[in-house]
Design a protein around this nucleic acid. Sequence first.
DNA 1: TTTATTTTAGCACACTTGTATTATCAAAGA
DNA 2: TCTTTGATAATACAAGTGTGCTAAAATAAA
Lengths: 198, 198
Amino acid sequence: MPKLVDHDAKKIEIAKATWKVIVREGLDNATVRNIARETGMSVGSLRHYFPSQSDLLQFSMELVSERVATRIREKNMMTAESPVMAIQDAISELLPLDEERRVEAEVWFVFSAKALVDARLKQLSDQVYNDMRQGFEWAIQSLRKLGLAREDLRADLEVYRLHALVDGMAVHHLLHPDKLTYRQMVDTLSYHLRSLCK
Amino acid sequence: MPKLVDHDAKKIEIAKATWKVIVREGLDNATVRNIARETGMSVGSLRHYFPSQSDLLQFSMELVSERVATRIREKNMMTAESPVMAIQDAISELLPLDEERRVEAEVWFVFSAKALVDARLKQLSDQVYNDMRQGFEWAIQSLRKLGLAREDLRADLEVYRLHALVDGMAVHHLLHPDKLTYRQMVDTLSYHLRSLCK
DNA sequence: TTTATTTTAGCACACTTGTATTATCAAAGA
DNA sequence: TCTTTGATAATACAAGTGTGCTAAAATAAA
């Protein structure tokens, strides 16, 4: 019988190395050779887990969305001081607040740019966008149902607005970290949510 | 004497062809050869105007920011019905409202992703970001000085918020044009600006 | 120890890339 | 008309790419 290796764990390890290379050298330099060197494996070994570079990139991108989704799903909403704080905490998970999240956000950003001309990535990009919007719809609806929201609030536009605000801030922080700090992001988000309430 | 060619005009022509290739095939495929084919020139001719690919890309990115800046600068604010409408019109210039602007926005988006790992592009990216923020600061200040703004408005956070909202919507529209249409963008922007006023 | 199977390592191939070199062309002044 | 000089074109080249293939190594049950 052969060696026992956790296939999935290895693939995740390789995907994380891929992120590292992308953040450090850009998507252009995320070559199989560079990624193999980053993991310490040979190119052949890498190919054993991912038949092609395309598969590797696809998997690496899927892993980002999975991890973000998991993090939000596992967040305990009940511990928050108030419903608004619970919503704010959940949304904060989408912002690059620490190094780990920063890497994921940056990788996602780079992938999104590529999704513009890559049909396969586009599909995933669309799906994640829909999931995110659903989340924001849920957030706005919650505020209304709890009677916290202002009466004159336009639910549909508020969803677009909140969604764009979050992604916009994330992008700004990635590209210009000292021009929009993490604290400023959180303050702005908090400020925005409060502005939706009576 | 040789043939007389308007150097600058030719460079702009090449840069526009570069945009075309980037939008159609992605930045990866914006190779010297592909761009040369797009313009109908030979690779050698292209090199006559741009010594290196890096110079070409740099110039192409600068051209985007120049054109956006010019468009805003030349916009006549006095024709608007109201100050708020004037601000809204100016900001709308930043949104991908027609094909031309869409191309520019998409190119800028792709370049921004590359600026994360390219120091030279990063410099331009920073400068444009600062210019934009100044513009948004001006917009918020205008609302206050005209006495239109709500009293409890936090100017600093409003700037971050408006800036992130605009860029966020632009990105969403680029990536998912039918999930956030041009009309929805404009409506949301208008809604947002009104929410800042008494 | 033997053996079946998975994993790894390395090489080769065809291809594309940016860039350099060289030659050709076209037009204006002597 | 001939030379000069900017513009264009064609070709060459070295470096780097993804990927297919083959042989060796490693491992755990028999």
